[in-house]
């Protein structure tokens, strides 16, 4: 595919992507074509000296691709675009002008890691951001996931819940649902241990459920005992495990020690 064709297709893609509401199907088709074009011209994973315009063009296509994947709820595709963009963001950062979409995409990736509870990866990615650590909070796109993570770790779940409407970019909201699922499971596992029983109404508020049937379904999933007549939920009792003395283990370890001592003396 000739470079001029790519430029033309790119224009078309920009139009299709910028249109309200955005034409997802058309974008997908265009992106598939453009990706082939990028591979043919060696721009998907640029090596060596490539002209500046081409690099910016390729980055732009991939960025649109990343947003498109989120809008069409195709998370694995977003992952692929993100890792392809890494080359442009990290290795060519000194060559090409920074992109306005860079931080929104990085932030989206962070949120995606949060929703999957991949906290270790979250921190590794955060460390590798080309920002000074104390200015992380100055960038709204990064600040949002950073705050979310902190609240999640502290247990301030209500703050997470309230922050779901404050997303800095449209695409962030696509992750809200799965993030809420993660939170609910977290809260549920806390409640199982921390309470003996809860009134159904309070449980619903704690778990951010608006109607009772959702809660009952959720309770059945987690095998809680719902007592509808009394209006309470009882959690499984912690079975007091009996502590048994591991005789065999103690004997064998003592014998091993004795043998070692024998060798020394």
């Amino acid at each position: 595919m000739a470079p001029s064709q790519i430029v033309a297709l790119h224009k078309e893609l920009q139009l299709a992507f910028g249109a309200r509401p955005c034409n997802l199907q058309k974008c997908g088709l265009l992106l598939a074509k453009l990706k082939v074009g990028l591979i043919e011209t060696g721009l998907l994973l640029p090596l060596g000296d490539t002209s500046l315009d081409n690099l910016v063009l390729a980055r732009d296509i991939l960025e649109i691709g990343a947003f498109w994947s989120i809008r069409s709820k195709d998370i694995p595709s977003f992952d692929r675009y993100y890792s392809q963009l890494q080359t442009f963001y990290n290795d060519y950062s000194s060559v090409i002008p920074p992109s306005p979409r860079e931080y929104p995409i990085r932030g989206l990736y962070l949120i995606r890691l949060l929703t999957q509870n991949r906290i270790a990866d979250f921190h590794t990615t955060l460390e590798s951001l080309p920002l000074a650590a104390d200015s992380l909070t100055a960038n709204p796109y990064i600040q949002h996931p950073v705050n979310l993570e902190r609240w999640l770790m502290e247990g301030s779940y209500s703050k997470v819940w309230n922050a779901r409407e404050e997303a800095p970019a449209e695409e962030y909201k696509f992750f809200v649902d799965s993030l809420m699922g993660t939170i609910r499971n977290e809260i549920a596992s806390c409640e199982e241990v921390a309470y003996e029983s809860l009134p159904i109404k309070d449980a619903a508020t704690l778990l951010f459920f608006t109607n009772q049937s959702d809660l009952v379904n959720f309770a059945q999933e987690r095998k809680w005992q719902v007592n509808l007549s009394a209006g309470t939920i009882a959690f499984r009792k912690k079975t007091e495990e009996k502590v048994e003395i591991p005789k065999r283990k103690l004997i064998s370890s003592n014998l091993a020690i004795a043998r070692e001592l024998e060798q020394i003396v």
């Binding site: 247990g155 301030s156 809260i187 806390c190 199982e192 241990v193 921390a194 309470y195």
Partner: peptide
């Protein structure tokens, strides 16, 4: 929530 998490 925080206390609940601490217990868990």
């Amino acid at each position: 929530y925080i206390v609940g998490k601490a217990i868990r």
